[in-house]
Amino acid sequence: MNDKSQYWQPYFAGIVLGLVLLAAFYTVGRGLGASGAMMRTVTTVVHAVAPEHTAQNAYLSRYVSGGQHPLKNWLVFQVLGVLVGGLLSGALANRLKFEVEHGPRFTPRARLFTAFAGGIIFGYAARLAMGCTSGQALTGGATLALGSWAFMMMVFAGGYAMAYFVRRQWI
């Protein structure tokens, strides 16, 4: 188990995250989020494989029209920065290891399958809701949007309710 002293103090990390959010509002006029970067990546792949489908699809075509490449967007660079920053942070703190964490009643393969399936459902729901939880919680919460606060309360309630069903996989 990792020594907890290697981690940032949560209140300090929260203040830093708030300052990063403030900087995003100030520099690009928008808050933080991740699902937009994933959508742009998916659009790029679909456009490379079937450009006529992308052009005829009302949802995807708005990401490829206008002459600008879909990946040339600050959200893509934000998500890349999160990935690289997390990798560097783990490496510098000697916490970098590649393993599949799972409970005694779950195989690594089952854990990867359920994580992948959950990610697909979550990604679809994020696009359907026109934003992900990071965008809702951080950006919407910071702007005191009532819908974002209600959404986050339901996320916590849903997570708490589901914990009963999945906790047995970890004990």
Rank of each mutant, 00 (worst) to 15 (best):
Ser35Tyr: 04
Gly36Met: 00
Ala37Ile: 04
Met38Ser: 03
Met38Arg: 05
Thr41Leu: 08
Val42Arg: 01
Val42Glu: 01
Thr43Gln: 00
Thr43Lys: 00
Thr43Leu: 02
Val46Leu: 14
Val46Pro: 03
His47Lys: 06
His47Met: 03
Ala48Ile: 02
Ala48Cys: 02
Val49Thr: 07
Pro51Thr: 05
Pro51Gln: 07
His53Tyr: 11
Thr54Pro: 05
Gln56Phe: 12
Asn57Trp: 08
Asn57His: 13
Asn57Met: 07
Asn57Lys: 08
Ala58Trp: 06
Leu60Trp: 13
Arg62Ile: 10
Gly67Pro: 07
Gln68Phe: 11
His69Pro: 05
Lys72Ala: 05
Trp74Asn: 09
Trp74Cys: 06
Leu80Thr: 05
Gly81Asn: 11
Leu87Met: 09
Ser89Met: 11
Gly90Thr: 13
Ala91Lys: 09
Leu92Met: 12
Leu92Lys: 08
Leu92Val: 09
Asn94Trp: 14
Asn94Met: 10
Val100Asn: 01
His102Ile: 01
His102Ala: 09
Gly103Gln: 02
Pro104Ser: 04
Arg105Val: 03
Arg105Leu: 04
Phe106Lys: 00
Pro108Lys: 01
Arg109Phe: 08
Phe113Asp: 01
Ala115Gln: 14
Ala115Ile: 13
Ala115Val: 13
Ala117Thr: 14
Ala117His: 04
Gly119Thr: 10
Gly119Asp: 07
Ile121Arg: 03
Ala125Pro: 04
Ala125Glu: 06
Ala126Lys: 00
Arg127Pro: 00
Leu128Tyr: 14
Met130His: 09
Cys132Lys: 01
Thr133Val: 15
Ser134Trp: 15
Ser134Asp: 10
Gly135Gln: 12
Gly135Asn: 07
Ala137Val: 13
Leu138Lys: 09
Thr139Phe: 11
Gly140Phe: 06
Gly141Gln: 08
Thr143Trp: 05
Thr143Gly: 08
Leu144Asn: 12
Leu146Glu: 10
Gly147Ser: 13
Gly147Ala: 13
